[in-house]
Design a binder for these strands. Structure first.
Lengths: 152, 152
DNA sequence: GGCAAAGTGGACAGCCTGACCAGGGAGGAA
DNA sequence: TTCCTCCCTGGTCAGGCTGTCCACTTTGCC
């Protein structure tokens, strides 16, 4: 991961549709270099792919909520498995600290959210839960600043 | 967003590098149809683009942590702005409930994490903080189940 | 000095894209 | 029913890009 790698990833972050040729032009290097860099980044597992970015809000899922779950001893995997079966559950992390599981979920409206939350808290072995609704997202998911620092 | 849209997005989720032509073959429709669908999805804001997916762990940022911040009255925007200036802060949500801000951050190792957390909690107007380290991610960020349901 | 890794510039065939067009089928409105 | 609109179909076209070679030069390190 040198500066050129970072510049390449930055470029692709800003304009993902760019082809290898165009990237090489922008970066001022030969096309083969860009191809080789991308191959290496992918081989190293840094560049995973180019998945479509979907706006859940535009799809009707305008509400996002977080839940912190406390789980009965030794039942974390079991609970995680159940959560995985709920489509609206978009992300689950096992954490240290006060809770055991941090869950991110989405819903279409308040009623829908109620339904989803009920499903989550009704999962067996869930002891205690604390739910928050996301009102806004001051910093949307991003990697850019980390890449920018590497360019130097 | 009918079943065809969902099938298209599902296909692209699984194999993002697929071109329009190949998609049309897989879905059994004309190429023009796929092109039109993608144009519409993009116009509606559902399909935002195809940003590169980067594995932060593979880039050296193997640690992820979450912090819940309580903010002094009316200072949420101010704090959010400061958080935005910290490269390791990858996501911030304003939430209801016990905390005011939910922060996701990454770091290279424990020392680095310490440094990042210090930066976060030292932001002016942050009253109280509660930090958790992500031990594992039983459910990585996903949208697939939601799409699958739409296919029916 | 000398080797290995990486970058350069050029070439090739093959395939895909974006744009366009005429025609047909489904569904709503008058 | 008939008309009209929207959408899908299947076709064509030129242009551009990809993947893959190649030989040669530069860089960095033992």
């Amino acid at each position: 991961m040198d500066a050129l790698d970072a510049r390449l990833l930055l470029l692709l972050t800003d304009e993902p549709r760019l082809g290898v040729l165009e990237c090489s032009r922008r970066l001022g290097v030969a096309r083969g270099t860009v191809q080789a860099r991308m191959d290496r980044l992918e081989a190293r597992g840094v560049l995973v792919g180019f998945p479509p970015a979907l706006d859940l809000a535009a799809m009707g899922y305008g509400l996002t909520a977080f839940a912190v779950l406390e789980i009965a001893q030794g039942k974390r995997a079991s609970v995680a498995g159940r959560l995985r079966d709920i489509p609206e559950v978009c992300e689950v992390h096992a954490t240290t600290g006060e809770g055991d599981l941090l869950v991110r979920m989405v819903a279409k409206d308040n009623d829908d959210l109620q339904r989803v939350i009920d499903q989550v808290v009704d999962v067996e072995w869930v002891r205690r839960t604390s739910t928050s609704i996301a009102l806004s997202t001051p910093v949307p998911p991003r990697v850019r600043p980390l890449l920018e620092r590497m360019v130097r």
